[in-house]
Design a protein around this nucleic acid. Structure first.
Lengths: 212, 212
DNA sequence: CACAATAAGTGAATGGCTTTCACTAAAGAG
DNA sequence: CTCTTTAGTGAAAGCCATTCACTTATTGTG
């Protein structure tokens, strides 16, 4: 239950116990397993005291950014084989939602801060390149990418709020008749939300880009 | 510096000092002004002790849900004049983003819990009705509404992360060349993100619905 | 109309969280 | 070899949400 280090825990250790990469990975893992981040518990996971983090990181926000980096490094970069705009859109959306679906609890926190982790910037840079190659007008690439990102996050978050964003029960059928009917309709005739969103985005973005 | 109530603060007051509605409104206001919610500070705003809330509410999450209700009640229901599907989509998206833009800091918290406030459910029920009247197939209404909601939240959050989701500076031009070029292109040729998204969604949703 | 039950406040306490800072001991530079 | 820097520790400060015994007013019941 204890590392066999008999020596004192004080002072600089002979071999480093922490690194920014290890912190990011552990934070990501914690989000996946516990759906939240607590620095004391993260320290426990890493066999370290909480104050140690502040030698590697300025604070909680930076740990979250490192988790973003760890997520990007864990998610494979898709093949973007210089295909059509449609293929590019679908591939990017799919890779985003696959990554985000791994850690829904992290997403609200990622939303509130700009992307600064190099691995993440690198990944977006490649996405932009793919848009360029597919012939998208330069000034529309960022808006398009943001739209894909938002949609992927929204879709992945639905997994967290338990497959239905609206909490109504049988007795309220009369109170919210249309909402209730719509929920019943989609239950009886299930729709693959991801495929639906992918269709919406590819059709919509292509139209917006072609109209330019 | 003190309310001139000479009587003791103990025991049940002669007239109620709190209500669920007042709590929701104050919480919404606090999110707008301070970009976060703290129960001690909310108590201060309402001239009450923090423990008092727990007579009206089960906890923090419920206060957040009351803030959602207050937001819906503050945002006007749009005219949805039995128009075309396209009009319905644009009106709903526009009213959602207008509402969400008032309190970007609240959005990440709203995302993590299902909608249960009656005023909010009522509002979504009317949106569903508008989709029905416009002739959307019943089983696609919920997915379409979720898409609009996600997009509106994403667009409103961009306002918070300071108009650019990616934090890169001049020196990194060489490191992320495509991203940098795309950012420059959109700076030189500004795109109205909301209008762009509205176009994407209306074209995309119409296509997805018509294809059905 | 008395009086029990309930409702709406208070105050104090608990246990969690993030961050800071003086400290120690090892690593690395000159 | 000495000096500075680095990577840990431990204790503490100052937040936060929630609980619970308490007080006082209101409401419902016989």
């Amino acid at each position: 239950m204890q590392t066999p280090s008999k020596t004192s825990q004080l002072g600089r250790p002979r071999t480093p116990r922490l690194s920014r990469k290890a912190i990011g990975r552990a934070a990501l893992e914690m989000f996946q397993e516990e759906e939240s981040l607590s620095i004391p518990r993260l320290a426990e996971r890493l066999g370290v005291r909480q104050s140690s983090f502040y030698k590697h990181v300025t604070g909680r926000q930076e740990i979250i950014e490192l988790a973003r980096g760890a997520l990007v490094e864990k998610a494979p970069m898709p093949e973007l084989p210089a295909g059509s705009l449609d293929d590019v859109i679908r591939e990017i959306f799919d890779s985003l939602r696959k990554a985000y679906s791994m850690v829904p609890a992290l997403l609200p926190l990622l939303l509130t801060q700009p992307v600064s982790h190099p691995a993440a910037l690198e990944r977006y840079d490649q996405f932009v390149e793919a848009f360029e190659i597919a012939g998208a007008p330069r000034h529309l690439i960022i808006p398009a990418l943001e739209a894909l990102d938002s949609a992927a996050i929204g879709a992945s978050l639905d997994a967290m709020t338990m497959e239905s964003a609206w909490s109504i029960n049988e007795e309220e059928e009369g109170t919210y008749p249309h909402l209730f009917a719509a929920k019943k309709a989609v239950a009886e005739h299930p729709v693959d939300r991801f495929a639906f969103l992918a269709d919406v985005l590819s059709a919509g973005l292509k139209a917006a880009i072609d109209d330019d």
